[in-house]
């Protein structure tokens, strides 16, 4: 399996990344890509239950911190797990760090495989694990004030369902 892992400040080109996945091998029959963007609002979610009654708060920008050297290793391990579970031909994980404005791209996960089921599933698995295991921390800026984002219980649950389905 070919894997591309990048942590970078600069933007990425979805079409270019898709093309790289597509051209990896002539056995590629499916390419799934997911891109995550900066929203112009954040719902205040405390650790535990997500508060649905809490109003959406608009944000000016978002900032992403990571642990250089460790994040790469964790992403490699996550990709390796995906490759063990599914028969994948190529994967791409790109995560941006630094200051990002609403509408900007944050993250890209791309998977190329022979058939669509494994590409869909592996892409979702990669995102779920990236969200809960990779050492990135997000803060928002609003009215010149910085505020760290809380982890979401729903992200943890999303990742946990993969360990359940393995036992079934």
């Amino acid at each position: 399996m070919t894997s591309r892992i990048r942590i970078q400040q600069q933007d990425f080109d979805l079409a270019e990344e898709y093309e790289l996945l597509r051209q990896t091998d002539s056995a590629v029959g499916a390419v799934v890509t997911f891109s995550g963007l900066v929203r112009d609002f954040e719902v205040e979610a405390d650790v535990g239950v997500e508060d649905v009654t809490c109003a959406k708060k608009s944000i000016d920008s978002l900032s992403l911190q990571h642990y250089p050297g460790m994040t790469e290793k964790l992403l490699e391990a996550i990709v390796e797990q995906a490759n063990t579970r599914w028969n994948l031909i190529a994967t791409t994980v790109i995560h941006r760090v630094g200051d990002l404005a609403p509408r900007e791209q944050i993250v890209l996960v791309g998977v190329a495989s022979q058939h669509r089921a494994e590409a869909f599933e592996a892409a979702q698995f990669l995102m779920d694990y990236l969200k809960t295991q990779a050492t990135f921390w997000k803060s928002i800026r609003r009215d010149n004030q910085q505020q760290w984002i809380h982890s979401k219980a729903s992200d943890k649950q999303a990742a946990e369902r993969w360990s359940r389905s393995k036992d079934e």
Binding site: H66, V107, Q133, A134, W137
Partner: peptide, 10 residues
């Protein structure tokens, strides 16, 4: 030694 709060990337 690094102290790591819950991660919030993606």
């Amino acid at each position: 030694v690094a102290f790591l709060p819950p991660v919030t990337g993606g």
